[in-house]
Amino acid sequence: MDSPSPIEIRNLSKTYRLGFLMNRQVRALQSLDLSLMPGQVYGLLGPNGAGKSTTIKILLNLVQPSEGEARLFGLPPSDREARRRVGYVPENPAPYEYLTGREFVTLSGRLNGLSGKELDDRVSEVLGMVQMTRAANLQIRRYSKGMVQRVALAQALVSKPALLILDEPTSGLDPVGRRQIRDLILEERHRGTTVLFCTHIIPDVEALCDRVAVLVGGRRVREGSVAELVSAQTTHVEMTVEGLPLEHIQAMGITLEMARPLENRVLLHVRESDAQPLLKHVLEQGGRVTQLHPARFSLEELFLRALEEAKQGPVGGEIS
């Protein structure tokens, strides 16, 4: 029998009731479906208020869904056994400031059921992994933001989780801190840990994720691997031709989206479907193609386009 998916989300919706009389409703998530394969690094990409953190909080039993269901390893998030296999770093993590880094990671280990020498060894190991051994005995109130983030990651790793859930793990960090966190996520992937992380930092998604879902206004508007998402969005093919004047090329009857004669060559933009026929004609007529490449949206452009599209349609937010 197949082992259950680390995360399975079906038709998940959340509407918050706000205000003193709870009569104001804000829709944070709408009919979300999501499935993670073991060992995958999955990114939830979206602007602020897209529903990324709400999704994560439902998975961790911090928020109850209004509709639909979420499952961790086939179990509901309210099941302690499901959460025992999860390590979580919230956005702007706030460990107890009166504790030292080592004490906080030890407390987390205890709450995860570890004890004795196994706990002590594991605490030292994860503090080493996040490069916090030297500062481990300082109170957390003396830590910089990057150090707090690393201790938060250590407490998430202490129980050797099969699933890591990270909410904006690199936000607010300097480039060195970001690099360290990214390296740690990659190390965890090599160990076979499944990672779900949400962010609005696109380079992190490109560097880390196997698959990505783009959320806007509580809805999933795109989903796929980074390569799939960007290759599915080829805008045009750029071709550089030498040995043929522009007039000859225009006479071939293929629609040119852009044609620019340069010193001894012609730069052309054509639709992807027209690229092969144009290439054939150019070669048949003695021309030489010195450059040919599909121009694709970057993930950032894709993200911005998804945002624009979502603005045209119904989105989440205040509904009454």
């Binding site: 911090l62 302690r80 979580y88 706030a94 460990p95 107890y96 987390s108 995860n112 059921g113 407490q155």
Partner: peptide, 14 residues
């Protein structure tokens, strides 16, 4: 208020 609750309530305890 200090948001320490997120790290605690998400742990495997009721």
């Amino acid at each position: 208020e200090r948001r320490t609750i997120f790290l605690m309530v998400s742990k495997p305890l009721s």
